[in-house]
Design a protein around this nucleic acid. Structure first.
Lengths: 211, 211, 211, 211
DNA sequence: TATGAATGAGATTTCATTCAT
DNA sequence: AATGAATGAAATCTCATTCAT
């Protein structure tokens, strides 16, 4: 009541701390899960890395599964947003440039969270609870839907063949995934994003020698 | 060797029984791992499915990890052999036909062991023990090596561009993987092998509209 | 005392508030313990029901055990007082009437706090800390002592046999308990107090057919 | 095959061992639960007392709750059987003798498992899972049903009043329970069974002085 | 004085592995 | 060689209690 600043900030303070802690836990979880593997990692490790007690994890996430799910949802959301921005930014450009404008930022995002995305893929393949699977599938389908929109635009603008258009979204997605996996297994330090142009070219022109 | 006929046959019989049991266990393991997930599956489940006691598993495989590794090695070996046969069989054909001749049987193999390959991919992304990782990486690199040989032949025969040849093997591999994953997540019943031709065409000619 | 009117009233106000909060907590605790069970109930639940924060509970009661003990003591005190009043009120009446005058109000009290008394009995059987047990035993003995006084008066007035007088207090007590338990398990809605007369008659005359 | 005895015993051996272990666990559980209290007792304590590893408990009982339930069921069954035998044994005797013939053995059984029965009562009052409650209630009702049969016989033989017969079963039951509780709280070493005759007399003749 | 997020000891349960029969 | 009961380390999750605001 007395101090405007402190009084005004006070109610927000708790909330801000909550958000901060929540983020700290998610950040820690990402690193720990990526480093130790999704199942090998113990909640205690996540807590230790986040600098909180185990019990605190459970004040923010119902259980282990919920923590993993939140992590997924978070990164997924970021990717979708990144995609939307990139797509909108390239709206005025010719198709190839727009495609590259979408692929490169996504690969950059990959680069920044490389370790975690491996975990993400791993758990995507996981044969777990039914509901978990559904959520995952929905997420993947949403991402694929993004690429479908790009392909549609390519077809509409006359840049892509209409006949095989059905498999194009998956094809781009696959190439990106592959670049990712390869970087992971070869433990290469070069950013995957550097291959964006080559990938787009391969997707558009194929591998065949032109006369 | 020491004993008469029956005794001479006996060691063979024993060996054959050993192999039979071993195979039964691996078969059971494949199904159980694929059905329940690699970590969710319990050794007891594998034993039950194989029709043996838990202890027996440990008479044939040092430990859980060793069982999984054997399963991997087994399927991997089959794929390599399949690849070699397909490649040799298409030696006389033009490049596109040979490539298709390699891709289609591999996808068929995928189709037959679809569930397990998902598990395989899952564990490939696994960040487990260092030595396990090495073995896995070696296996993947070997498979990629196979595709490198195909690409080399394509380049040599003038069918593929030399400039981007470096990323071609991964690209083909990626497209196959992707077709696989997509089938898994969409729970499609159509054989992935049916998409072989489309994949090869996309790889060779790209997605761009030709004038 | 030192300060003026407002200051003089202030300590009383504070005290009254303390008592009010304390009562609110005890009331909440009774309901929560009775509903969820003595061990299943969490301090947080009690706090929520009382409309205070968890920390506040510990401003009023040292710890969980102390809260339970207070609850017990409170109800126990009420029963003792109820007993004394009833006993005094029936002093001039013949023995059977006086006994009924004691039993019926106690059973009514039971009816009002039925759920809690089940919890009370439960914890009476609890094999917990030594000191807790002592307190409980003292409470029970005090209640039994009340009935001993009634029995004594019955013997003195020539209404009860002297020979078996030792087991009479427990017998009455047992019958009351039993009526209680039975009501609980049969989830009967009829007040136990309605059986008071029948219980007293059974206690006095037994079950045997008289010639 | 070679040895009749050993071969014949062999299949039974495992089963007999299973039963033995199962009994050992139940015995240990009874003591531990009675000594430490139903919730205070840890599975580890039960295991230690039974001389097995914790895991073994779970080879025999699905979970903690199941162990407790088995214990209850076991003792309950024994009591029912004891009751049936006693009742049949006194069939030819006059009512009072038959009643005593039923009450005394039950109280003896109480004496032998005194500590556990306290636990039994405690958990009977427990407000736990719905299904658990149902099982318990069924058990109690079954026991009460036994006493109802005795009372019926008493009424039929003209020994008991018909009018109040409804509350007689509970009354006997209550008196027995009370004797039990009292012995527990007073930590008396005298067998409760010694009070059997007094209880029966009180039940039959009441406390009133006869002219 | 009230608050409620943080704490961390402790309990239950699982399951890969062993080993006596 | 096959069996399957016993083992016990390890992981998840709970909740009474504390203490900074």
């Amino acid at each position: 009541m007395k101090h405007q600043a402190s009084a005004a900030a006070s109610p927000n303070l708790r909330d801000r701390l909550r958000v901060l802690t929540s983020q700290a836990i998610l950040d820690a979880a990402e690193v720990v899960f990526a480093t130790q593997g999704l199942q090998a990692a113990r909640m205690e490790d996540v807590a230790a890395r986040a600098g909180v007690a185990v019990g605190t994890l459970y004040n923010y996430f119902k259980d282990r599964e919920s923590l993993v799910a939140s992590l997924h949802a978070w990164r997924h959301q970021q990717m979708i947003e990144l995609f939307e921005q990139s797509l909108a930014a390239g709206e005025a450009q010719p198709f190839e440039a727009q495609l590259l404008g979408v692929v490169r930022p996504l690969l950059s995002h990959f680069d920044q969270h490389r370790a975690f995305f491996v975990v993400l893929m791993q758990s995507e393949a996981e044969v777990g609870r039914r509901e978990t699977m559904c959520v995952r599938r929905a997420a993947i389908l949403e991402l694929r839907g993004c690429f479908e929109r790009v392909v549609e635009r390519g077809v509409a603008s006359g840049a892509l063949r209409r006949e095989d258009a059905e498999i194009f979204p998956s094809a781009i997605f696959a190439m990106m995934q592959c670049a990712m996996m390869q970087a992971h297994f070869s433990e290469s330090a070069t950013p995957v994003a550097d291959q964006a142009a080559a990938l787009v070219r391969l997707f558009l022109d194929g591998a065949r020698v032109r006369p």
